[in-house]
Design a protein around this nucleic acid. Sequence first.
DNA 1: CGAAACTTGGAATATTGTATTCCGAAATGA
DNA 2: TCATTTCGGAATACAATATTCCAAGTTTCG
Lengths: 282, 282
Amino acid sequence: MSVLKLLEAQKAGMTLADRQIAEFILDDPGRMLELSSAALAEATGRSQSSVVKFSQKLGYAGYQQLKLAVNKAKALEWHAPGGVIHGTIDASDSYVTILQKLIGSKLLSMRETSSANNEEAVDAALAKLSSARKVLLAGVGASSLVAADFSYKLLKLGRTVLLNSDSHIQISNASALDESDALMALSHSGRSVETVRIAELAKRRGATVISVTGMQTNPLAELADIRLFTVADEDRVRSSAITARDAQLMLMDMLFIMLLRYQTDANDFIHDSESAVTVFKV
Amino acid sequence: MSVLKLLEAQKAGMTLADRQIAEFILDDPGRMLELSSAALAEATGRSQSSVVKFSQKLGYAGYQQLKLAVNKAKALEWHAPGGVIHGTIDASDSYVTILQKLIGSKLLSMRETSSANNEEAVDAALAKLSSARKVLLAGVGASSLVAADFSYKLLKLGRTVLLNSDSHIQISNASALDESDALMALSHSGRSVETVRIAELAKRRGATVISVTGMQTNPLAELADIRLFTVADEDRVRSSAITARDAQLMLMDMLFIMLLRYQTDANDFIHDSESAVTVFKV
DNA sequence: CGAAACTTGGAATATTGTATTCCGAAATGA
DNA sequence: TCATTTCGGAATACAATATTCCAAGTTTCG
């Protein structure tokens, strides 16, 4: 995940001084690289110590490390894939342009989502998903559809999965969890009331909570044992959670494919389930 | 030109001290980024001032600038081989390779789906979707989730949508259609029994049938009034309908975005529905 | 051949930059 | 309203970097 995206996402929740510094960096990352902590402080009208503290709050050891991260983000930014257009979709766009921009946005979200998650978190999630006695999936709205898609895949792998779009039933299911179970909770905002409640309940029951949320600080990720992240490109595809959903799907698809490797008998299950479905074909 | 390439090229013509420093950096650029000029001097057995002079001889203002250059070179190098990879995902692939191949397959499906549909068919579908009194969505398995996703979007646009995963209820709904209504039937194979039955019924009732199927000849597309197509990349992402689903979603997302242009009051609806949902956020 | 001029690279030092501590002010909460 | 926490700047301690200076080794040329 690029620092710049991280800043963008967290900016809103920052204090005044931090936000001013973040804005300066986002506005002109190249300039920031030439500035010392004191110079950046002067340019933003804050104190040098605030700049250092800002760096540390972001998780870096100090200002130098933040600089390196910004430098890296800037270097990678250049690398736009060929034939893909990144731009805001607007009403005057032609049919072809809309398609190109839509694909571009989807691709961007998928790429950033794939780099937003480190291998350790993914491994931890995989280990728990494959060892858990049962897996409860939670999500409302668009996230519930992603949850349903994933549950469908887990079922194909022969795993025990609980899913219900009715939040009362989800709560009941969560109450029945224990240490050997896992809850996978999806919410791009990380703030959907029902999903957070279910996660709290599951955690109290001792189940492992895996969160799938956006990068901004949010209650769901905070209480989770294993945190996975999705990155959306909402600015470009206005309205509706299109790229947020794509990012979630991308992450779940990846988990599914990785689970196939964990589980040696996976292909048998999939084959069985697919030939069973063939009965319903014309 | 990356600093690392530059070092490699100039190394031979350097003095002893400089060559030792260059070698250390080439050997482990990541390590160098963590070291101060003094620490690097110690590690190479030279003096701190030599390190600074080395940086300046290369054309940088100082050691810090050299560090930024190395950091950038490293970032680009790491990212360079990571374009879009088209290949079959197999068990021995690394984490990063799986991600790249998965994204590559998704991208391929989306691109081919976008070129598989001509603008006339899309326009006809849009016209019917926005003028129909009510829209019935049909699909089973993974397609039902795509249908649900689309119904969610249509609801946001204030349209009357019928959707139910229970095929008996879907049949009842189809029986109640007439000429002013539309049925959108999704099935990648075009052969799912329930979906085909519903489409036949809807057609008999005089409703406009829009099919969303794969490109191969299939019963569903044959009886449809408007045919839309999806292209999957199943060969590469083995098992399960990942890219078929992505292609369907891509098509539906595109329809949704185009509907936004048809319908001038669309943004009001979306805004209302989104602020209504905000009530449920923590 | 040998002294002047130049190069190399380290020690010492000056300069600059970074991180921590401390404290008052503001916000938060009981 | 008073206690507690958070925020952010000033001062300061600490660290890193850049420059200067010098000794030893090289080259140049009378």
